[in-house]
Computed example of a mutant assay.
Amino acid sequence: MNKFVPLLLAPALVLSACNDQDDQVEDRIETQAEQSARASGDAPVALGLTERQLLDADILASDGTELGDVEAVTKDADGNATELLIEVENSNPDRYVTTPIDGLTVTTRGNDTDLSSDMTMDDIGALPDASLQ
């Protein structure tokens, strides 16, 4: 066997391990978000929406451009949503940021309930990466 083959395979193995870790974190976040939404039930947690509705929402710029998808909801001690974990649209690898609920408005597009923001994709890009634990 060529002595360089292991050196060529090493980066692929590292990338594979990173992707597996990222997938595990994403799966954990999704599972926790679904459990929290079930526990919240039909009670509105922000903007007149339930946690489930927030999790199903996209974040849109004022011109309708999709900025990202809501992945998780942070709530205060009273069960009110305070901020959203967003997966930034078209990020590769996936990038996550948080944004406060304040300043978002409910937008209905057909059967979809989404959230509109005054932010642009540049504004989202300038936000720090969310800490995914």
Rank of each mutant, 00 (worst) to 15 (best):
M1L: 11
M1T: 14
K3G: 10
F4N: 15
V5L: 15
P6K: 10
P6Y: 10
L7T: 01
A10F: 12
A10P: 05
A12V: 15
D20I: 08
D20S: 08
Q21K: 14
Q21F: 13
V25S: 00
E26M: 11
R28I: 02
R28S: 14
E30N: 09
Q32A: 14
Q32I: 04
E34D: 14
S36R: 04
S36L: 10
R38G: 09
A39V: 06
A39M: 09
A39D: 14
S40M: 01
A43D: 14
P44H: 06
V45E: 02
A46P: 08
L47K: 01
L47T: 03
L47H: 00
G48P: 11
L49S: 02
L49D: 01
E51R: 07
E51Y: 02
R52W: 08
L54F: 02
D56V: 00
D56K: 13
D58T: 12
D58N: 14
D58F: 13
I59M: 03
I59V: 14
A61Y: 06
G64I: 10
G64H: 06
T65Q: 09
E66S: 14
L67H: 06
G68D: 00
D69Q: 12
V70C: 06
E71G: 04
A72T: 13
V73Y: 07
T74N: 11
K75N: 03
D76H: 11
D78M: 05
D78L: 11
D78V: 10
G79C: 10
A81R: 04
T82A: 06
E83Q: 12
L84T: 01
L84N: 07
L85S: 10
E87V: 12
V88I: 14
V88D: 00
E89N: 12
E89P: 00
N90E: 05
D94R: 10
V97Q: 02
V97W: 02
T99G: 01
P100K: 08
D102P: 04
D102V: 06
D102E: 15
D102Y: 13
D102A: 15
D102G: 12
G103V: 04
G103Y: 07
L104E: 00
V106F: 06
T107G: 00
T108I: 09
T108Q: 13
R109G: 02
R109L: 15
G110D: 08
N111K: 13
N111V: 08
N111R: 12
N111H: 09
T113I: 09
D114R: 07
L115Y: 08
L115R: 00
L115M: 07
S116W: 07
S117V: 01
S117L: 05
D118N: 12
M119W: 10
T120Y: 08
D122M: 11
D123K: 07
I124T: 03
G125Q: 13
G125E: 08
A126W: 10
P128K: 07
D129P: 02
D129F: 02
D129Q: 09
S131W: 05
L132N: 03
L132H: 07
